[in-house]
Design a binder for these strands. Structure first.
Lengths: 179, 179
DNA sequence: GGCAACATGTAACTTGTTACATGATTCC
DNA sequence: GGAATCATGTAACAAGTTACATGTTGCC
């Protein structure tokens, strides 16, 4: 049920269309909670039914019309209530670690390559985080909302750094085994 | 579809009952892939249908009978095939970071407490990892299978260490904001 | 002419969660 | 007497994924 809240949280920033939200879940908030556009549209329909967002169609020239969703007072209350309740633990599903766990049954060269692919993904993500940090936070006067986002970003950065170091070490360890 | 493979991977170690598997998904392999007992039983039924495991009932005295599942040759092949194909990226769903992202809409004292709870969870997990390391790996002669598990464990340890440091920092940053 | 971006959705299916259901033994 | 552990599952529902479906504008 936290997709609902993640959407509401995005809408506290500004009213958005489903398309905007889908893009947001592919970047920014998507770093902490990922969702496809299909999920977003389905959840928006439910939020509208529950009165937590209001939707209005905006005409546009040269582009298809957008349906813009605005968080309601009840929506804000729902976010506040949710935020006061304990979090569930983040779900963990990592195929790469499961493959390491089964090392003697597994295709080792393929696995080594996959570790490399993953390493590159984390490097890219770290660079993306650095750019966001430079562009929006570094050396700026920040509102409370921005400070919260900066804390989340900081955690993201140190997590990526750690993952990169870990994977580099893992690749070396795996190489040693196959000598 | 990777729950199937995670179960098969567990069964490469030794034949197990659904109950054993459910416990395994609550510890060891559960550190990388979590699943409830309901999911395990459902997936076992499918694996049996697909011929990837074979099941036989074992009578026990004083306890209910167990149904023990053994991985078949086809099961091993399925693991190998899966391992050679690229991994999907691990899913990310972290309510705590979403709450930080929405700091000005959120109940801040409650959030601070939740950060503390999460910090404790990671500390406990780290201790658990240390114990596993001591008991099974440190200063021992390791098979290839064990070396793979050790790599995964090493990654788990450094990830927990990083999370602990990050959360401690986040709690301080959040405290500074509310002064 | 083709592809990317803009924009919204439906349908079918697979996974994951919550609740229910049963029943024996062992330990406190 | 009650709780914990052992042991197996079903059913209903919620969430997530994959594939399908349509149509415009702007750029190369």
């Amino acid at each position: 049920m936290a997709l609902a809240e993640a959407i509401l949280v995005c809408l506290t920033d500004r009213p958005m269309s489903g398309y905007d939200l889908a893009k947001t879940f592919d970047a920014s908030i998507g770093f902490f909670w990922r969702a496809s556009h299909q999920q977003v549209y389905r959840e928006l329909a439910r939020l509208r039914e529950r009165g937590l967002v209001e939707s209005s169609e905006m005409e546009q020239r040269g582009k298809p019309n957008r349906i813009v969703h605005t968080i309601t007072k009840e929506g804000y209350n729902a976010v506040k209530l949710w935020s006061s309740k304990p979090c569930r633990q983040p779900s963990i599903k990592d195929e790469l670690l499961v493959k390491l766990y089964a090392l003697d049954t597994v295709d080792t060269p393929a696995l080594t390559e996959q570790l490399g692919v993953r390493l590159d993904q984390h490097k890219e993500k770290l660079q993306a985080y650095y750019k966001i940090n430079e562009r929006f936070y570094e050396g700026k006067n920040l509102s409370k909302a921005q400070k919260g986002k900066l804390i989340a970003l900081t955690m993201g950065i140190s997590n990526e750094q750690e993952m990169i170091a870990s994977l580099e070490k893992a690749i070396i360890m795996l190489g040693d085994i196959n000598e």
